[in-house]
Design a binder for these strands. Structure first.
Lengths: 271, 271
DNA sequence: TTCATCGTCTCATTATATGGGACGTTAAAT
DNA sequence: ATTTAACGTCCCATATAATGAGACGATGAA
């Protein structure tokens, strides 16, 4: 799950500053929830140290978040904290609604998985990431079961790249301002020129390909989904284990995938 | 998605009270997030009215939550609010970790869906609800695709009831203190005696059955999953459309389901 | 047994939340 | 086209809660 954060982390270093001002307690509490999710199970002192916050403040907030049902602790003599099911329940509702998309996509996704036998992923853009919001499993066994909520940098996954390729120029420029790292690496920066070339190819072909993406070495082919105004906001992809889905197999699936993505875009435009 | 809240709503009426005291702003903010998720897209005044809070307070919190990335508004002249992808991303991490369960369950679930051809659901207990955290789709078409994050009252779903049946006496008593409504009804209370009888039957047989559960009329057979200490904390179920999965079909699947649930429990006890 | 570290709690001080109400704007009703 | 009720937004004096240093006993490692 780290991959989704990699690029986000750099920016969050600033967020982790300690902004005095309005709604500070709320901000602290939410940051606490996010960090507990990341580091769970984690102790109070450890948390305070990593966030550079006073122990007493963290402790008080932890108790509050427990009361409100967002955090839980195990029963040990040195309590360790983790997040409850609340965020998932809340987020599930978000997806349920947010998605005319989900409704428009489901039948198409189901059809696609029967045509191809592979797993179909639906991702929604969230800032500079793409978040997996729905998955329909292929009929084959030995599948890759990524959990809903997994997120990747837009420059990583095939669906992310296909969204990137059709983004308004200004937004893309802004995205390219911060360096993008190659998957599996935290130091190896992708040259901007290389990324631009790939995006140009994606625009031309109408789909993107990714091979061997962590965590579970999976390969995928992805296409963008557009809203009424023609802006890409989601991605559809066919995903499978790298050793079974090689580039030629992926290319063979391209026409079906592109057709499915277009059908969803059209379905979304008809509200 | 309403079904998950139905019974919860009664209790939340009290939560919705306005407790002065420590961490009040945090509590208000979190309640706001939960309610926005429930009612989205929703306007500020509407929200304030429904929560019986001053407009100014709600407005200030909305702006803060937007800053922190938990809420978003559309661009209309009368902004409507909805939740962002943040909760899903946070919750996804929760699941990722929480689940030795997920890891232990996945291969068993995959095997089970191949044996039966039906969709397999994995739910985790969250207070008095059970939350769908993982779904593996059956190989048949015309499936029911419930989104991860959907939650039901424990007395509703088959997996919930099977958890209830094996709960410690004290906890069960506490659960039965508040009245439980029949699904699809907001007034029709299930007699406690009837519920007790059903739970006794479930204990005896080792599995529970539910027919025609909303939102998508689905029927299911469920069994509980236990932790090392023998406490039920999750549920496994086979779910399908009501018109295809009748009681006799469900009963035929029982032995396989019970075996799978037991295998997961054992897998969990071996850390 | 020693001892550093942990979770927990208190309290005087400081900072923020609070919400009534005013203002300009929007959109529905007339 | 005009009216009007409801909306989003913001200000500001007051009430309220957040803050964090430090104390304490409990825990687990050395």
């Amino acid at each position: 799950m780290d991959q989704g954060k990699q690029s986000g982390e750099a920016k969050r270093a600033t967020d982790d500053a300690d902004p005095r001002g309005p709604s500070r307690p709320v901000g602290l509490a939410l940051r606490l929830v996010e960090r507990v999710a990341e580091w769970q199970p984690v102790g109070a002192s450890d948390l305070a140290r990593r966030l550079a916050l006073p122990k007493a403040t963290v402790h008080r907030l932890l108790l509050a978040l427990e009361t409100f049902g967002w955090l839980e602790r195990d029963g040990g003599s040195r309590p360790l904290w983790s997040v409850s099911m609340r965020p998932i329940a809340v987020g599930g509702r978000a997806i349920e609604w947010k998605s005319g998309l989900r409704i428009a996509a489901l039948s198409v996704m189901d059809a696609l998985r029967h045509e191809t036998g592979e797993s179909i992923h639906l991702g929604l853009v969230d800032g500079e990431n793409i978040v997996l919001i729905e998955r329909i499993d292929g009929v084959n066994s030995v599948n890759i079961f990524l959990p809903v909520g997994t997120s990747w940098d837009l420059s990583w996954s095939s669906s992310g790249k296909s969204v990137l390729a059709h983004m308004p120029e200004a937004e893309l420029e802004n995205f390219l301002k911060t360096p993008r790292y190659r998957r599996k690496s935290e130091t190896d920066i992708i040259p901007v020129a290389e990324l631009r070339d790939e995006l140009a190819l994606i625009r031309e072909r109408g789909f993107a390909i990714s091979v061997g993406v962590p965590p579970a070495a999976s390969s995928s082919i992805g296409a963008a989904i557009f809203d009424k105004r023609g802006k890409p906001f989601a991605g559809l992809s066919i995903t499978g284990a790298s050793d079974r889905l090689r580039e030629e197999q992926l290319l063979a699936l391209a026409p079906r995938l592109v057709a499915a993505a277009r059908r969803i875009s059209i379905g979304m435009s008809m509200d």
